[in-house]
Amino acid sequence: MEALFTSTAVVALAEIGDKTQLLAIVLAARFKRPWPIVAGILAATLANHFLAALVGEQAAVFLAGRWFRYLVAAGFIAMAAWTLVPDTFDEEKEAAPSRFGPFLSTMIAFFIVEMGDKTQIATIALGARFQSVVAVTMGTTLGMMIANVPAVFLGNALISRVPLKVVRTVAAVVFLAIGLVLLAQTAGWTG
C-alpha cells in the first residue's frame, strides 16, 4: 500500500503545472470532447508508466546493492531540485495532429511527451524503490489522472487559480523527503 500511496502523491503533485498537464488543456480546448481525451491520457499513462516502473524494478534487481540504493536516493533528491524548475510548453511543437481524433491524438501525444519527463523519471525511481511494478504503475497512473482530469474539464480556469510555485515546492519537499529517508535507511542511520 505504501508503494501505491507514495506513487500517487508524488506524481499528482509533480504533475501540476507539468507540460503534460498543459497538453491536456490544449487538447481539451482543441477537441472540446473531454472523455476521449481522458481515455487517451489513461491509456498512454498506463503504457508509459508500466514500462518505466518495470525498468526501475529490473534495474533494482539487476543492480541490487548498497551503492544502487544510494543512486536511487540521489535520484529522488535530484528530482526535488528538478521539480522546482517550471515547465514550458510550446503548443505548436507539442500538440499532436488533430487528424487522428481526440483519443488517438491524446494517447500518442501523452506517451511521447511523457518520455524523459519528471513523472516518468519519478516512476522509474519509484519502481526501483518499491520493486512493485503493479502498485507503482497504479499509483503513478492515479496521480496523473488526479492532476490531469480536472485540467481537461476545467482547463485554463483551474491552472490560473492554482499557485504552481507552492505546488512545485510541496512536490520538491516530498521528493527530497523520500530521497533523504532512503539515504538514511541505506546508510544505516535509522533503526
Rank of each mutant, 00 (worst) to 15 (best):
I41C: 05
S105R: 04
Y70E: 05
R66P: 01
A96F: 15
Q21R: 05
M145V: 10
D117Q: 01
Q131K: 06
A177G: 03
A125Y: 10
A128Q: 13
G75W: 14
G188Q: 08
A73Q: 08
P102M: 02
S105A: 07
V173N: 06
R161G: 04
A52Q: 14
W67K: 09
F68I: 04
A52K: 09
A80S: 14
L164T: 07
L180R: 13
T140R: 05
L126S: 05
G127Y: 07
A60T: 07
T20K: 02
W67F: 15
A39C: 13
F175I: 01
T137M: 13
V85W: 14
G40W: 08
V11F: 11
I25N: 02
I112R: 07
G40M: 05
H49L: 07
V166F: 14
G139Q: 08
G188A: 00
N156Q: 15
F175C: 03
I112F: 12
L84D: 05
W35S: 12
A64F: 13
V85G: 00
R99D: 14
A177Q: 03
R129W: 15
A59S: 14
V85M: 08
L51T: 06
L126W: 07
T190A: 10
G139P: 07
V170C: 00
A80P: 01
L42E: 11
I124C: 03
N156W: 15
M1A: 10
A80H: 09
L176P: 02
F111D: 05
I77D: 04
A59L: 11
L22I: 11
F100E: 04
M115V: 14
E114M: 09
A47Q: 03
A151M: 10
S160D: 13
V55D: 08
L51N: 04
F50H: 06
V170E: 09
K118N: 12
I178N: 09
L84Q: 14
R129N: 07
A172Y: 08
T169W: 13
T186W: 06
G143P: 06
V113A: 06
V10C: 00
M115E: 00
L22G: 01
A187F: 11
V149F: 11
M144V: 06
G191D: 15
A157Q: 13
K118I: 10
A125H: 10
A147P: 02
L13P: 04
K165E: 14
T83A: 14
E92R: 11
K32G: 05
A157W: 09
P36H: 13
M115P: 07
A95C: 10
V11K: 00
V166L: 15
G65W: 09
L71N: 04
V136E: 12
F68E: 12
V162G: 02
M79Y: 06
L84S: 00
V85H: 12
A64C: 00
V85S: 09
V152Q: 10
T6M: 08
L63T: 02
Y70T: 00
